[in-house]
Design a protein around this nucleic acid. Sequence first.
DNA 1: CGGCTTTCGATGCAACTGCATCTATGTAGA
DNA 2: TCTACATAGATGCAGTTGCATCGAAAGCCG
Lengths: 139, 139
Amino acid sequence: MAWARLMRVSRQLSEKVEDALKRGDLPPLAWYDALHEIAAAGEAGIRPFLLIDRMLLVQYNVSRLLARLEGEGLIEKLEVPGDGRGQTVRITEAGRDLRRRMWAVYGQAIDGLVGRKLGTADLETLARLLGKLRDPPVD
Amino acid sequence: MAWARLMRVSRQLSEKVEDALKRGDLPPLAWYDALHEIAAAGEAGIRPFLLIDRMLLVQYNVSRLLARLEGEGLIEKLEVPGDGRGQTVRITEAGRDLRRRMWAVYGQAIDGLVGRKLGTADLETLARLLGKLRDPPVD
DNA sequence: CGGCTTTCGATGCAACTGCATCTATGTAGA
DNA sequence: TCTACATAGATGCAGTTGCATCGAAAGCCG
C-alpha cells in the first residue's frame, strides 16, 4: 500500500510540476536541479562527476545535460588546472536568471501540491519516514 | 524538505527496483504494472483507454506499450462487438507466467526496500500522509 | 621510464518518449 | 440524412535516454 502510493503520488506530483513549467515556457525540472547544484557551488564551480551523485543521474546524462545547458549559455565549462581530463562548470548570469524564473513557478507549485495539503507536523513526519527509506537512511 | 526527499527517495527506490528486474533479465516495471491491471480484468479483458488513468500514462504510451506486450505474446487484442473503434486486451498464459516471475523479483525488492525499513505503524502513517497528497486526496 | 589500470567525460547506435496529427468509428443536432 | 463534432487508438518525426564503448589524461608499480 505504502509502496504503491509512494510510486503513484511521486509520479503524479512531478508530472504536475513539469506541466506547470511547460505552461510557463520553462525547461524541465532537471535543468532546475542542475542549475541549483551548480549555483550552490558558487564562483569556484563544480566538477561534473560530483553532480552524478547529487542529482541521481548516470554519467552520460550529466554529460548531455551539461552540454545542453552550455549550449544555452546557462553555464560555462572551465579547464581544471591540475587535471587535464576534467572540467569545472560554473553558472552564468543567464543561468542565475533562468533559475530564478523557474523557481517562481516551481516553488509555487510545490507549495500548492504539498505545503497547502499537509500541516507542519505532518510534513515533518513525512520527511522523517522518507528519510528512513533513503539510502543511506537518515533518522 | 519533505518535497525534496519525496522526489529523491521515490527515484532512488524505483531505480533499485528496475535494477533488480534487469539483473533478473526481466522487462521494466511498466510491463508489470500493465500486466497486473490487465490480469485483474480477467477473461473479459480491459479497454486500453481505461489503462490510461490507472497507469498514469498518456495515450500514446499505452498504445505503444500494449503493442510491445502483444508483440511478445503476453497479451492479445480482441475486437469489441459493439464498437468498431476500440479493442479489448486480455492477458495470455505467457503473460501470466511473466507476471509471476516479475513479481518474485519485484515483491522481494519492495520488501527489502520498504517493508523491512519501516514498522507496520510507520507504513500506515506514510500511506495516510501520501494519500493526502494524492489527487483526489484520500483520507 | 614503461606498461597496466583507473578515472573523467564524450559519443554512436538503438530504443523510447513527447508532440502533433491522422484514421476510423461513433454520436448528436439541424 | 447530412454535417459537425467527439472518442479510440496508431504513428511520423524530433528529441531524449540507455547501453556500450571510446579517447585522453592520471595514477600505480616494477
